[in-house]
Design a protein around this nucleic acid. Structure first.
Lengths: 251, 251
DNA sequence: ATAAATTGTTTTGTGTACAGTTTATCCATA
DNA sequence: TATGGATAAACTGTACACAAAACAATTTAT
């Protein structure tokens, strides 16, 4: 908070000046990742390599690596000779992401129930508690973050890394979808019902938990995606159409 | 086949000498990807940047990008200051991959049945036909490849790109698992039963197809993973354990 | 006045150099 | 002969430089 460096402070490292090797890349990645997923960078925002390199105090080489990774995760879009921008999921992509989440999160529930322990359930309840706190103090960003975190942590109970990693990617893409299409209150509204599924899981009711999850994800998708039809940023065409329409009507 | 270049021929490009921009990277990626997935490069094989750069006639910069991508896909392993090697999935990882496949491939079946058309079914039947041909002429490599291709193409019928991409990754990792743990005949034996599921799908029997898929994937996993317990290469620990055990017993 | 062309600036793509680390080799010593 | 350590070789990580492409702005032509 008080450092007078020219470059961005890369979070909690005790070693003060300059960290080693891939830790730095990782820190830069996390920063950019958080900035995108937490919607500090609007979808479509350009991400010039020079700017980022200077901001983080490294060369373009490291920045490129990070951008490649984010592109692989579909959080940024890299076009040839045109650089990187924060990704703007299409409606199709948004629907695919939520359909994928239904398949994965409902499919993994059986294992989640099977591997649930008091410890893990307590940790999950804690996430829900913090979610409620964030909501009641009006911290929408934190509430959205914790909402996603809950789903990821729930999947993590299954101890299947392939699934957990995939879902992590889907959840972060969901955040982008919310940023692109979401109504102002979307993503965490209806005072998160996450408690309910924990009850079902604790009771060993896999079928019930699966049905709950399916309904929950459909609800979330409905409040997020189906409200708008095209990305707000790339609306030029639609806006022009609207103008043209009004023009015709008023002629 | 007849070029006297010093670098590897990067497949079918009409432009003869040197291709442009990211097309070259893509070609290098495909070459390495195929080499790994088709088991031309044994798991654990070192992949030095200089060697690859020289082999493909580009600088290390391009090679690095390709290796990073393969690392994201878990096909190669990159360790700090230690370079890249062909990945050696652990047993845990292998089980996770197959469990993930069961979740995804069974979960997507409903959409596959819903979106199946005569065209798509014909294309799938063609894959199965080529699979049979490869088997009957003893081309095990091609048979394994087409076996994986069938699963991916089946998922593609759902038209969900997130799911299809994820499954593509899981299938290529399965190939690595087969290369690491598989019995000599594993991966495509029992004269692929893939025809059966096409019948069920064509008949619109989603439940039947899902059950078939679950059983099929369990069968494949059993013939591939459960035969061995540890990677043949990194067996040191287990060998030592065995030695220690024998030592205790004979003491 | 509009469109096309040209020039200049910015940004990306790719190769190369150098520093730092790991790995291999060799020799001394027990 | 085996062990330990020093030296050398090989390789990776990062920065930097130059070339090529895209973009913006100005001039020129129609």
């Amino acid at each position: 908070m008080s450092k007078k460096r020219t470059s961005i402070d890369l979070g909690s490292m005790q070693g003060e000046e300059s960290m080693s090797g891939s830790a730095r890349d990782e820190a830069i990645y996390r920063n950019l990742y958080a900035a995108i997923v937490e919607n500090h960078l609007e979808p479509g925002t350009k991400l010039p390599e020079d700017t980022l390199a200077e901001a983080f105090g490294v060369s373009r080489t490291s920045i490129r690596k990070v951008l490649q990774r984010l592109a692989y995760e579909r959080l940024v879009d890299i076009r040839l000779n045109r650089g990187a921008t924060v990704a703007q999921p299409t409606v199709k992509e948004a629907r695919d992401v939520f359909a994928a989440r239904r398949i994965v999160e409902c499919g993994v529930i059986a294992q989640v129930v099977a591997k649930a322990t008091p410890d893990k359930l307590a940790a999950l309840r804690d996430v829900v508690r913090r979610e409620h706190e964030a909501e009641s103090r009006g911290d929408r960003r934190e509430a959205i973050y914790l909402s996603g975190e809950f789903h990821v942590e729930l999947a993590r109970v299954s101890e299947n890394e392939a699934i957990t990693d995939f879902l992590t990617g889907l959840v972060s893409r969901s955040s982008l979808v919310i940023a692109t299409y979401g109504a102002p209150m979307a993503g965490s509204c209806r005072h998160s019902e996450h408690d309910d599924v924990l009850e079902l899981i604790a009771a060993g009711d896999a079928d019930g938990a699966r049905e709950w999850m399916d309904r929950h994800l459909r609800d979330v998708e409905r409040t997020v995606v189906l409200l708008e039809e095209e990305p707000t940023a790339l609306d030029l065409r639609k806006v022009l159409d609207g103008v043209a329409q009004r023009h015709r009507r008023e002629r």
